[in-house]
Nucleic acid binder design. Structure first.
Length: 112
DNA sequence: GACATGACGTAAT
DNA sequence: TATTACGCCATGT
């Protein structure tokens, strides 16, 4: 399958997100060695869409104004699935589908 | 190599 | 809070 370079690092970090916690694309990318690779992380996860994977991709959200993260998937169906998976893990999303990082945020280990 | 696209982020308005 | 603009970087044409 030969994933493009860098993607496996992204996946490795995502795989390390604890259950019930969430992280932003920027954090994932940073932890994977791409301080400015937020888009790369998004691109890598987009490639998983529709594929049956055990990767906790639903724990990756987009950074929003203030200490919040929110679902950033453009596809409404995918977004709905992600929200359902998060709630199933005990992550509380507010009316706008936002998640307070101070409550569910995850600080990746390894790099910074 | 140029150009367009994207599950991004930050700043300005 | 939403919209717009720009910067960032991997992929595909």
């Amino acid at each position: 399958m030969a994933q493009p370079s860098g993607w496996k690092d992204i996946y490795a970090v995502v795989r390390g997100i604890p259950r019930g916690r969430v992280a932003t694309y920027a954090q994932i990318a940073s932890a994977a060695g791409r301080p400015r690779g937020a888009r790369i992380a998004g691109y890598a996860l987009a490639a998983l869409k529709g594929s049956r994977t055990r990767l906790p991709w639903h724990r990756v959200l987009g950074k929003r104004a203030g200490p919040y993260a929110a679902i950033s998937i453009r596809d409404p169906m995918g977004a709905a699935v992600q929200r359902r998976l998060l709630e199933a893990e005990g992550v509380r999303l507010d009316g706008r589908g936002r998640v307070p990082l101070e409550r569910h945020g995850w600080q990746p280990r390894g790099r910074r």
